[in-house]
Design a protein around this nucleic acid. Structure first.
Lengths: 229, 229
DNA sequence: AAATTAAGTGTAAAAACAACATTAATAAGT
DNA sequence: ACTTATTAATGTTGTTTTTACACTTAATTT
């Protein structure tokens, strides 16, 4: 019985994570100052190497945890980048993953201890290797995702206002949306619970708070829909 | 200067190609009888290993050519599969690619000499490893692609009838489409040239032949649209 | 001449979408 | 206490898009 494909070349396989967050300032990504050569000290996506006995999905989870302390983040695979010299040290193919997380829930302190930092999408620094390209592709995918799956559960605080949800969508799509049309389209998805409670921060009148209806939200995650905003 | 990431594990990286074709019988995929162990003699996607100095896209092209003689086929990357034991011989991560080709143009003889064979999607045999899963995901992607890019140039003969185009879409989407609505939606894309010439095979009256308007078609390939069929 | 076959063509009703402005609730200021 | 300022909440209408649907035409075969 065969136990190796002896003639084939082996390569390093890396994983890079594009972590999106959202707060009152807008859409952000989480970056780290690279702590090893080459390009040590430059800004980079959160990345690392796949281990021999590890599935890519798990490598992404492990690597994210190593550099940020973040746990239980569901990431989705995007694309494998394989340009010969993308990493100048050694031939490395990198598989990108992306996720959406809530900045506030995920403890800024923790992230900071690990030297990770949030950057507004627009103001993010130049990144090493082909990481800027990875980010651009991830944004594209995130926009597409927005049109077929609900979004926000991972990004907003538990209770949020319609305005916050609207601003999230506007940030992702980077375009203005009509408030009234937005509300009726979102409502037609039936994934929100309107609370009695109001948020009094934002205005004198106060605005109603909402939560996601977890069951319906997850059902919509499985069964794609079409949402034109 | 660093010249290796010495502690990281290297793995085999494979590429598997899902080649879709279309003829009067419907949508098909191209498979080969595997010519090496393990699973020698079983049906498989067209696959092989990435070489050290090769980009994934090129590996896909080379591998497809090796097993089928096919040339100049544009393939698109889909997904990296990394289950630990997906290949029982040795840890192998496989990146899937897919393409659409015209069965008739691409010489059945040639393919046959290489022991590749077309199978109707519905009647395809059980495949080795996780190849069936790869095919399912590719079909899903193909359906999505259909809604944002024109399709058919790669799959149909140069001159074709509206019915053939309709049947192609029906095969990909696996649902019936309304003939009149289909025609007006396709016409609104303005990618077809209607010829004077008629095809007299299919009916007594004969049906007009069309060609794709290459410039417009390629423009639409770049600038996605929305097509609801 | 009649029958058969697939091709070709248009309309009307329903649904979805886009654009738009006023009133309501409350806190702050006088 | 009244006025002012601020943001929230809400619904309608015209337009566009989508869907559903059936008859006539051209040519061959019988």
């Amino acid at each position: 019985m065969l136990n190796s494909y002896s003639s084939a070349d082996k390569v390093l396989l890396a994983v890079d994570c594009i972590i999106f967050g959202f707060d009152h300032e807008g859409l952000k990504i989480l970056l780290i100052k690279r702590d090893f050569e080459p390009e040590k000290g430059k800004w980079s996506l959160i990345g690392g190497f796949l281990k021999r006995d590890e599935v890519l999905d798990n490598a992404a989870i492990r690597i994210l945890n190593t550099y940020t302390g973040l746990n239980d983040i569901y990431m989705e695979q995007l694309y494998a980048y394989s340009e010969i010299d993308r990493d100048p040290v050694e031939r490395t193919i990198s598989v990108s993953y992306y996720a959406l997380i809530n900045i506030e829930n995920h403890n800024a302190e923790l992230i900071k201890n690990y030297h990770a930092q949030w950057f507004s999408i627009a103001e993010a620094p130049h990144l090493i290797f082909d990481h800027n390209e990875m980010v651009q592709n991830a944004i594209k995918r995130l926009r597409y995702r927005t049109s077929i799956k609900p979004i926000g559960f991972e990004l907003l605080p538990e209770k949020f206002t319609m305005r916050q949800l609207l601003e999230l969508y506007e940030a992702i799509l980077s375009k203005e949306l009509d408030k009234r049309n937005f509300i009726s389209k979102i409502n037609s998805l039936e994934i929100l619970n309107k609370l009695e409670e109001k948020d009094m921060q934002s205005s004198r009148k106060g605005s109603y708070l909402y939560t996601f209806n977890k069951e319906k939200y997850e059902e919509k995650l499985l069964n794609d829909f079409v949402l034109n905003l």
